[in-house]
């Protein structure tokens, strides 16, 4: 089922993919039973490329990000698939090997900037320890790098601010600090898990452009996890829409937005208010996302989909058309898509 990886059109032959996720599966085992958080997730990412991972909460997008970091904790467990990062299978690495990779070659930025920095440690401590976790440098050198990183993300008077505590910064500034920490080792890949959701709209835009600028400067690949399709539009090269632990649609951003194939993607797009004409009823997807412990049989979107029929009781396979793929028994044809 690793359709994306083997699809020649999604892979530019000029460079080997930086990240090649194949059939990834993560399960959570609790006393309520076993639940599959993500099932058969596959995608690839080249150096410098930006992938938008879109979905509702509980769709498995964050779990996907965490499993790339090797941060799936009990009771969760990766129980299938491969995460090939620069040719190495991360799923097979030992804890120690993964530790060396984290923060060095793959970094992560989290959602709530108020929560991601340790409140009782100085910014300098939290940055210097990151430098020294991977590079054997002097304190002075580590501090210099930390200061430079702060400057790069647009924090004024970095030398002074270095010795402040997190609560002395505003939310947007804290997220900049978190980004500076993520960029300390100029990683090959940054996973950003809704890093702008908790911020004001204006700050959101600033952070977005900052990240965009820096990643393209360093050639860093980026996975941007969000529930907001509109953010992905301007930022990503490719987009993967997740639902119920699976990627239900995948393809170049422009194409997915212009002609979505999966009914869920279509619903998402129609839920964006700006796409509705004034006076129209706001469209929405009725119902709730399924819990991982009570996943519907077959297509996970079936209970909320008005096009569902008996066929949808079977899990739809990933159908690929060019570099645009979807997982639906009744995909929107391009003609229908244009009409909507």
């Amino acid at each position: 089922m690793n359709g994306f990886a083997s699809d020649p059109k999604t892979m530019h032959s000029s460079s080997r993919a930086l990240l090649d996720v194949r059939g990834l599966k993560v399960k959570f085992k609790t006393n309520r039973g076993e639940g599959t958080a993500i099932n058969d997730v596959s995608f690839t990412l080249r150096r410098g490329e930006v992938l938008g991972l879109v979905g509702e909460s509980g769709s498995g997008k964050s779990v996907t990000g965490m499993s790339l970091m090797g941060l799936i904790e009990n009771p969760g467990r990766i129980c299938g698939g491969q995460i090939l990062f620069d040719g190495i299978d991360l799923a097979k690495l030992s804890d120690l090997e993964m530790e060396r990779l984290r923060g060095k070659r793959i970094a992560m930025i989290f959602q709530d900037p108020m929560m991601t920095l340790n409140p009782v440690l100085r910014i300098s401590t939290q940055m210097i320890e990151t430098v020294r976790a991977h590079d054997d440098v002097t304190l002075v050198e580590a501090r210099r790098r930390a200061r430079d990183a702060l400057g790069q993300v647009g924090i004024p008077r970095p030398e002074e601010r270095l010795d402040a505590y997190p609560h002395e910064f505003s939310g947007g500034m804290r997220q900049r600090v978190a980004i500076a920490i993520a960029l300390l080792h100029k990683p090959d890949l940054i996973i950003a898990d809704e890093p702008t959701t908790a911020l004001d709209v204006t700050i959101q835009a600033q952070i977005l452009s900052e990240v965009q600028k820096l990643t393209s400067e360093y050639g860093t690949a980026l996975i941007w996890i969000t529930h907001d399709l509109s953010i992905v539009c301007g930022l990503a090269d490719n987009v993967a829409v997740m639902y119920g632990g699976q990627i239900v649609e995948y393809g170049p951003v422009a194409e997915v937005i212009r002609s979505p194939r999966h009914r869920y993607t279509d619903g998402l797009l129609n839920s964006v208010p700006s796409r509705n004409r004034r006076g129209d009823r706001l469209r929405q997807i009725s119902g709730f996302a399924p819990s991982i412990f009570s996943m519907p049989q077959g297509c996970a979107f079936r209970p909320r989909c008005s096009f569902a029929d008996d066929a949808c009781h079977q899990t739809p396979p990933l159908a690929t058309h060019g570099n645009h793929a979807h997982r639906c028994w009744h995909p929107i044809s391009s003609r229908e898509g244009l009409g909507s």
């Binding site: 941060l71 970094a107 989290f110 709530d112 920095l117 990151t130 976790a133």
Partner: peptide, 17 residues
């Protein structure tokens, strides 16, 4: 379970640290 612990792990810190 705090986010800053996850973030600290994501930085590649050792368990001891």
């Amino acid at each position: 379970p705090q986010e800053y612990i996850k973030f600290a792990r994501a930085k590649g810190l050792s368990r001891q640290r």
